[in-house]
């Protein structure tokens, strides 16, 4: 296969959002199921997919709700610091 540009085999950075990961996972699974890629590409897709699953699960496991208050369009502070 000539294409390496579609994400296959690229690293899956830690800061991808859950939405991006889930979207890419769906794409990878579809490619594996429908396109019947050759073995090398199938392995690359599998590896990337497993990476997304693992990162997403980590995100879910260690998440703690972060709440901030918008003071202006660009200014934030942790929510709850203000007195009533």
């Amino acid at each position: 296969m000539t294409d390496k540009t579609d994400g296959t085999g690229t690293a899956s950075p830690d800061d991808l959002t859950l939405e991006v990961r889930l979207g890419r996972l769906e794409e990878i699974v579809r490619m594996l199921e429908v396109e019947e890629p050759d073995l090398e590409r199938a392995l690359a897709l599998f590896e990337e997919g497993v990476g997304h699953v693992r990162h997403a699960e980590e995100l879910l496991a260690k998440a703690e709700l972060r709440v901030e208050e918008l003071l202006s369009e660009k200014e934030l502070r942790p929510f709850g610091e203000v007195t009533e």
């Binding site: 699974v29 594996l32 073995l39 599998f46 997919g49 699953v53």
Partner: peptide
């Protein structure tokens, strides 16, 4: 995620 992991494995097995 579980479903995706299973499908990934199945996809790879299919390719093999």
């Amino acid at each position: 995620l579980d479903a995706a992991a299973a499908r990934l494995a199945r996809g790879l097995r299919g390719a093999v």
